[in-house]
Design a binder for these strands. Structure first.
Lengths: 195, 195
DNA sequence: GAGTGATCTGAACGCCCGTTCAGTTCAAGG
DNA sequence: CCTTGAACTGAACGGGCGTTCAGATCACTC
């Protein structure tokens, strides 16, 4: 009964990843079964293994892909020369990027402990690379006197936590729009480091 | 082979909760089995049901207990009269309280989606009550002109996310001590709202 | 020292898990 | 029209899941 009309690898593959992403984000990696994912794709569980070696790879590829996108998008973001402008740009970028990908963000922050140690190490490196970009901005600003930060590493983590938190409450169609929210967060970030 | 020497309900009950807390925090609720918890307690799985009606209740009681403690501790915290002093006190309180309970904090932020809807509603009310305490400080400060916050609700969530983030990186014996970290976070919180 | 009841074991219940694979279907190429 | 092979099914594998419960054990009371 296989090979129904209109079923192709080019459709099933991406669909698998989309379904897995949404289910992992909603219920958590450990609580989602391959059979549930298969049902969402519209296929039997066995067929999933034509598109992924196992469940762990499905999770890892989702998370690594998200971090790849994040790092690439940050690199492509136009950055002003002065520390204040750069911090504001970073904050707006971070807020907008994360608001555009709520499912991926949820997974990226919640499922780290479900990665194998080797896969976890890869993600840690990527996360570190991203944090380094912000830390560099803060160190620059502290050096030029634009910012007052007692500890650049602490401030980096504090700001990222603050900015990422936006995904936990923001809903489209609410009281505030994305641009508005991004601007307010950028302003709070600047003030937090004494700009 | 039951009723070994030295086995008592007063020991097994609390021990069950401690083991469940640590395992839930480390591996996640969905990934931990009752048999694993029983092994940690030093008992067969069936015996756990003398101390909890089911796995869900175990999770819920841990989370509700944590929020009860949080709200009670906040109520008992001495608060200055002026908004700046209150915000600084709140920030230091939040950082210290959360650093003292890393396992509970992890569970409280990661396992909300594994609660039944009724249990989730209870936790939501408690979380809301806690956020309201901070929001009241920000509104007071905004009213007296001590703070500049375009949106008190947004600022509340931003600050709580920033402060709670401390648990994700702080380790005892590291470069910075608890009091130091609490002071820096308090300073960043004050600046973030334009104090 | 007999009896009681709290405490716990160990086996079982029905069910779901991730993964494998022989076999079936069918669009496309020759 | 026949062959091929990509795409998929459906059943099975061994194992773990949460929960229940009859029965065993033993500190304690009287």
């Amino acid at each position: 009964m296989a090979r129904k009309t209109g079923s192709h690898a080019e459709i099933t593959g991406p669909r698998l990843r989309a379904v897995a992403r949404d289910l992992f984000a909603r219920h958590g990696y450990a609580a989602v079964s391959m059979r549930q994912i298969a049902a969402g794709v519209g296929v039997q569980a066995g067929a999933l293994y034509l598109y992924t070696p196992d469940k762990q790879a499905l999770l890892f590829e989702l998370m690594r892909g998200h971090m790849d996108d994040l790092l690439a998008a940050l690199a492509a973001e136009p950055m002003p020369a002065d520390p204040c402008g750069r911090l504001a740009a970073f904050a707006r970028f971070h807020v907008h990027f994360h608001l555009d990908r709520p499912a991926e963000v949820f997974i990226a922050y919640m499922e780290l402990r479900n990665l194998t140690p080797e896969n976890f190490a890869v993600l840690e490196r990527q996360r570190h690379a991203y944090e380094d970009a912000l830390e560099a901005i803060l160190r620059d600003g502290a050096a030029t006197g634009a910012f007052r930060v007692p500890d650049a590493k602490l401030a980096t983590r504090a700001l990222i936590a603050m900015l990422t938190g936006v995904t936990q409450w923001f809903r489209d169609g609410g009281r505030l729009g994305r641009a508005e929210v991004g601007a307010i967060y950028a302003e709070m970030a600047l003030r937090a480091v004494g700009a």
